[in-house]
Structure formats: structure tokens, C-alpha cells
Simulated assay, not measured.
Amino acid sequence: MKISIRKGAAEDLPTVLGVLDSAVVWLNGMGITAQWGTESFSGRPGAVEQVRRTMSEGDPWIAEVDGVPAGTMTLTPHPGRHVPPAAEPEVYVRLLATDARFHGHGVGAALLAHAEEETRRQGVSLLRVDCFAGSEGRLVAYYEGRGFTRTETFAVDGWEGQVLERRV
């Protein structure tokens, strides 16, 4: 399976929401409801606005397999509002998700490799991401397996998060 990654734009909001919605269904099917809840992103106006705003703050990227959206991420020069910015220039991975149809096929890894390339291209050496720290830390372990190291933790309304970073 060949994964290609293209730069997204504001008009890709429905595509990004579709990938996020698919990821929620997949997570729920695995019994993971605390990460992104049980409702679709596209069915929650506040979530749609948050995704739109995040995309407008940075560069959205769409991973495709044979022209079919398989994953997404948005790279911003700062984290979301619940994480303090770094004390140096950074690239922050946000809204990273894989469409359920492509889970386990390396889409997330391809997007993270692209994030590293983009970080270098921008002349920045710090790449950061945050993720859900629950579910026995499986997502934290996923990022650690891709060279990220844990930094600080945070909580938002009982939702436990972990910030990770990687030097590129």
C-alpha cells in the first residue's frame, strides 16, 4: 500500500472530520470511549469549530491511499490551549488520526515521518505532540516507539494527557 501525503486546506474540513469520525468509531469498537468520547466530531458544533480553528492555525496534511483519505494531522507552531508552549520554536502535531479502514497500515507513522521532514524544512529542531494517557498508556507507547520522549502531563476535565517531544 502506497501512502501519499498532500497539503490540506480549509476546504478539506469535511475530509478531516470524516477521518476523525471514523477514528472515534474504531476507538469505540475497541472499547476506548474516554479518548475522544462516543459522539462523532462532525455531530458536535463545538468540535467542528475547534477542528476548523486548529486547521486555520497551521498546516493541515492529508494522507491518501489511491486517492482515498486515510489519515490526517495539522502542524501548528504552538500547542493547543491546554499545553504551555515550549521555550523555543516548535512544530506541534495536532489532530493526528487514521481512518478506521487503514488502521494498522502505517498511516500514522507516515504522517509522523512527514511531520519530522516539515519540522526540519522549517529550520526547527523541536517536534511535540500530546495524546490521551489513559487506556494503559497504549498511545503514549505508540509515540515512544517512534522516538518521542515523555515530558509533562496535563488534565482537562478529568481527561489525562501526556506531552511528548522529539528532536529532529
Rank of each mutant, 00 (worst) to 15 (best):
G67L: 12
G31K: 14
G134L: 02
F132L: 06
A100L: 03
V65W: 04
H82S: 15
A109P: 06
V107Q: 05
P85M: 10
A113C: 09
V51Q: 07
A63K: 02
E39A: 14
R128H: 00
L27S: 02
P77V: 09
R53M: 11
D130Y: 05
T151C: 09
Y142K: 00
Y92I: 12
V140S: 00
H82M: 12
L95R: 01
A110W: 04
P79I: 01
Y143G: 00
W36V: 02
E64Q: 10
A87N: 13
S42M: 00
V129M: 07
G80H: 02
A70M: 11
A109K: 15
A97N: 06
G147V: 13
G106H: 04
G147P: 10
V65T: 09
E136D: 15
L127H: 05
D130A: 11
R94P: 00
Y143M: 00
T54F: 07
L112S: 03
E39C: 11
D99T: 09
L95T: 03
T98F: 03
G43Y: 13
R94F: 01
T54G: 06
G106M: 04
P84E: 12
M30Y: 03
M30T: 03
V65E: 06
G145F: 11
P69G: 11
R81W: 06
F102C: 10
T54V: 12
H103P: 05
S135L: 02
G43T: 09
G145D: 10
T151V: 13
S56W: 02
R101D: 09
F41A: 06
L126I: 01
R52W: 07
G104P: 10
L75W: 03
R146W: 04
T76Y: 02
W61N: 01
L112P: 01
S56G: 04
R101F: 04
G80A: 07
H82A: 14
T149Y: 08
S135D: 14
A110C: 10
A97C: 09
R120D: 10
C131Y: 02
Q35S: 12
D99C: 08
M30F: 03
R101L: 07
A87K: 13
I32E: 11
S42C: 01
W61K: 03
E118T: 14
F102H: 14
G58D: 05
I62T: 03
T119Y: 03
E117P: 04
L139F: 01
A100G: 04
Y142F: 13
W61I: 02
D66A: 15
L75M: 08
T33V: 13
A100E: 06
L139T: 00
S42V: 00
A141M: 08
S40I: 00
G46A: 15
T33K: 14
